[in-house]
Design a protein around this nucleic acid. Structure first.
Lengths: 245, 245
DNA sequence: CGAGCGATTGATCATAATCAAGCGATGTGG
DNA sequence: CCACATCGCTTGATTATGATCAATCGCTCG
């Protein structure tokens, strides 16, 4: 069972029947569970293979000596944490669960076997990695150049589109199990200021956000506010060089 | 000729004689030159293989519609721009030269041939990629959590250590061909504020910085100011799992 | 020589952090 | 079951950090 991952990879490249079989059999181990707000792996530990998030949300973060926390990425269902990370001997960051999370840990040997079986899956996974790096770059732009309201609006645009790529949005609504403190730590704002930014977005009828649900009433305005340009997500695949026939 | 790259890879892993030969022959094409402040490749263009920076400094950047520019990375000699990027069909950012730059463009086919010849080089290049991603994450932390003076101090620490890994530092001095505007765009500050931060660092005897030279008089103080922890650079390799005999 | 760039300075303004307090919902132990 | 603690959200007041605007100066280069 790796439906969300498969769905996402298929938005990058057309896979053959045997590609899909290979993918499914690589991710067929018994899943693990971790409770909300627990860590999957901590800075300083030794990484073991890859984690595939199957259900729930997780996040990557780094903490400074004095306690300041920066959230570096959100992992949604179908996301892989750190392909190839086992080459580095110690984790330079931590990964934690936001909700309770169902995930699968896959050894690097198993991944290698998969990519040997199916070069197209290998490329799709590479693509996935490249997109994650592009997202990390865009977060750097977000923190360096955008103001508070722009940052939060941008993050909402990104998360909505990524959820939409795995079929987890309705027309204009999606899950958003983040606290305001999470939002603040992801956007480099204080929790108090994040709260005020949200109030502004709500009062201008752009979004509603409560009870872990985000509703975007005016996506094009949200995009305009945040100077959002989705091309960094590289979501659309027509004419990929390496499609299956 | 790929001395800086080789030197850097050897700080990750011990390579055999034939590994080095394979590496050298892959990067043996005639080099290209690009003038200072010219672009190597622009957002929206189609990427072709990999660029190895051989001499000079380059940088990765992204520009918002309204002109704001964020510098995302600096490329020093021995750095590879975007291994595997050719999978994505369009560049989502630009790469420009800071000084005049000597570089080599290598096709992805040639790279694949190299990694097929030498699995150890393949792993070293993977390592290199992972370190670049770790640097990108650290920049995200820098912009999200650190104040102006901490950001600039942190950047100086990083660049000094990276230059030191390729043998381009003397005791406490290194090249630093950045303008204050470059520094500002890399750290998400205004040029005016970057100037004031530099004055503060100079007046407290921590560094001197003029004429494209940076001198660090008190590295441990600089590290303390910026809460710098070099582990994200993953520079030290004793006991790597995949050393050559 | 003049233009333009990079560095610098001063004054003012905007954005966001910090501090402090309170509120409502949830959960827990006595 | 209630008392109490905790967490997440909210509000107001004050302060700090850094942006913006404007001007100057030195230097290099054509």
């Amino acid at each position: 069972m790796c439906g969300a991952l498969l769905k996402k990879l298929e938005s990058y490249v057309r896979l053959s029947h045997s590609d899909k079989k290979a993918l499914e059999s690589a991710f067929a181990e018994a899943p693990n569970w971790v409770g909300a707000r627990k860590d999957l792996i901590r800075e300083g530990e030794t990484p073991q293979g890859v984690n595939l998030i199957m259900e729930g949300w997780a996040y990557r973060y780094k903490q400074l000596e004095d306690g300041r926390r920066q959230i570096l990425a959100f992992f949604l269902p179908g996301d892989l944490c750190d392909l190839n990370i086992e080459l580095l001997r110690t984790m330079d960051h931590s990964i934690g669960a936001i909700t309770s999370v169902k995930y699968q840990s896959v050894s690097s040997a198993r991944i290698e076997q998969l990519t040997n079986t199916s070069p197209r899956v290998e490329k799709a996974l590479h693509w996935e990695t490249l997109v994650n790096i592009a997202i990390q770059r865009e977060w750097t732009v977000n923190l360096g150049q955008r103001r508070g309201i722009e940052r939060i609006a941008h993050l909402f645009c990104e998360l909505f589109l990524r959820l939409s790529a795995i079929g987890q949005t309705s027309a204009s609504e999606c899950e958003m199990p983040l606290t305001q403190t999470d939002l603040a730590d992801a956007t480099g704002l204080s929790a108090v200021h994040a709260n005020r930014v949200l109030q502004e977005l709500r009062s201008t009828q752009v979004i509603s956000f409560n009870g872990k649900k985000l509703k975007i009433h005016n996506f094009s305005l949200l995009r305009e506010i945040s100077l959002f340009d989705e091309s960094y997500l590289h979501l659309h695949t027509e004419g990929s060089k390496f499609d299956a026939p």
